[in-house]
Design a binder for these strands. Structure first.
Length: 428
RNA sequence: GUGGAUGUAGCUCAGUUGGCAGAGCUCCGGAUUGUGAUUCCGGCGGUCGUGGGUUCAAGCCCCAUCAUCCACCCCA
């Protein structure tokens, strides 16, 4: 019988990886909490129309990457390919955007049917942050400063660069797009094949083309600079000024275009050159029109999303994960003989009751030697030994595994106090 | 969706012009009593991704298929 395997592009996250995930999630939550953001949890499945109406009908995501299926009652449902649409839907549905300000975050799996490669999977995880009800560049700046703080905290700040751009108002963008398409249509023959296709699907994406011939052609093309509306220009200038005074370095990248239709004005990406083709580790922007587009009363909004797998890849390639993250046991307890084992259960339970120490009791038998080997491999700093000798004198043996110090016997009643003192001294 | 590379033990990988399926690591046991990491000895472990074909004989050659990785596209 053929073995059942995980679905392509959907990965198990194994025990040697989960500590890194927990570390990243913990640090992100701390930063978010320090800015007063609240968590929102949404369903993973939504009505298909939600994504069609928000992301854009002709985007690759909607056209060919969504996991869409029929519910038993015939409704078309879709595994969420991103979080913003769900978040807006949830906020709107519960009145959270009605005349109020919101600062929210969520984390969880997203689904896109793409060909997997490094940093790109069919089930992947994002941590998303969305804000509503604030139209000025101050909140744009706050979001960017928050991400910058996170990179510093994670030790990634030297490896990522901030790219910044403005897409202007919907009207300005539309005029620019029309003129750009008109110009490029006259030179279709000089465009690379991909860009020819984009001409009808997502012409702004052509600005991002990697073909040098296409880039040459673009030098003579209309420039968005000449189309931007005054309000967007001011918004962008103020944002840049705020980032300047906060000491945050950025590169204005006029070719930076986001793939989703709902973005306008500010867009930004944090990019690394350490991960191969999937360099964008965090990206977002302003989407003032989306709430209204989804049927709500108009509300300005800005947000971004981080790719968790990509951040973890980056942490690993930079070897930026602190050593303690992989340390899961403080004490490994070994008992020799059935009577000692019964006593040891009581001792380790009391230790757990009276301290925060992480104590693992050896189970499953084996020779004393093999138990010592397991103690060593566990990474614990101490082995706690109990045999007939110790039981006779009411003590346990504490054996250091990581330093060249002698083992010593400790009165069982004083064990917790002794260990807590040792670990407290270690903290200083 | 397109292109390239790769599938052999739990892991990392050898395997010659086609001729008995291998190593290292891990795991288990041992090197005189209850002391780990180094060392030495022994052991467990494989439908060679899967299905066909060629051949006296296939891990190796041919076809198909699946999966993984990398890149394109797209995106976090």
């Amino acid at each position: 019988m053929a073995k059942i395997k995980a679905i392509r592009g959907m990965n198990d996250i194994l025990p040697d990886q989960t500590p890194i995930w927990q570390y990243l999630e913990t640090e992100v939550k701390r930063v978010l909490a320090s800015y007063g953001y609240s968590e929102l949890r949404m369903p993973i499945v939504e009505q298909t129309d939600l994504f069609k109406r928000s992301i854009g009908e002709v985007t690759d995501i909607v056209e060919k990457e969504m996991y869409t299926f029929e519910d038993r009652n015939g409704d078309s449902l879709t595994l969420r390919p991103e979080g913003t649409a769900s978040c807006v839907r949830a906020c709107e549905e519960h009145g959270l955007t009605f005349n109020q300000v919101q600062r929210l975050w969520y984390m969880g799996p997203m689904f896109r049917h793409e060909r997997p490669q490094k940093g790109r999977y069919r089930q992947f995880h994002q941590i998303g942050v969305e804000t509503f009800g604030m139209q000025g560049p101050d909140i744009d700046a706050e979001l960017i400063m928050m991400t910058a703080r996170l990179w510093r905290r994670l030790g990634l700040d030297q490896a990522v660069k901030l790219h910044l751009n403005t897409l202007g108002s919907a009207e300005a963008r539309a005029r620019f797009r029309d003129d750009l398409v008109a110009y490029l249509s006259e030179h279709v023959d000089k465009l690379d094949a991909d860009s020819q296709r984009r001409l009808s699907t997502n012409p702004l994406r052509i600005l991002d083309s990697k073909e040098s011939s296409t880039q040459e052609l673009l030098n003579e093309a209309p420039h968005f600079h000449d189309y931007i509306d005054d309000e967007s220009r001011h918004h962008f200038e103020q944002l840049c000024a705020l980032l300047d005074s906060a000491g945050i370095a950025y590169e204005v990248n006029a070719r930076l275009v986001r793939g989703l239709d709902y973005y306008g004005k500010t867009v930004f990406e944090w990019i690394t050159d350490q991960l191969g083709a999937q360099g964008t580790v965090c990206a977002g922007g302003r989407y003032d029109g989306l709430v209204e587009q989804l049927g709500g009363r108009p509300a300005p909004a800005v947000g971004f999303a981080m790719g968790v797998e990509r951040l973890i890849l980056l942490l690993e390639t930079l070897q930026a994960v602190p050593e303690y993250v992989h340390q899961k046991i403080d004490i490994y307890a070994i008992a020799m003989g059935d009577d000692a084992l019964a006593d040891m259960f009581g001792i380790v339970e009391q230790l757990r009751e009276e301290s925060e120490l992480r104590v693992q009791l050896h189970c499953g038998g084996g020779s004393f030697k093999s138990q010592m080997k397991k103690a060593d491999k566990s990474g614990a700093r101490y082995a706690l030994l109990l045999g007939d000798d110790e039981r006779r004198s009411g003590v346990v043996t504490l054996k250091p595994l990581r330093e060249a110090a002698d083992q010593k016997q400790i009165n069982t009643a004083a064990l917790t106090a002794e260990l807590v003192a040792i670990y407290a001294a270690e903290q200083e």
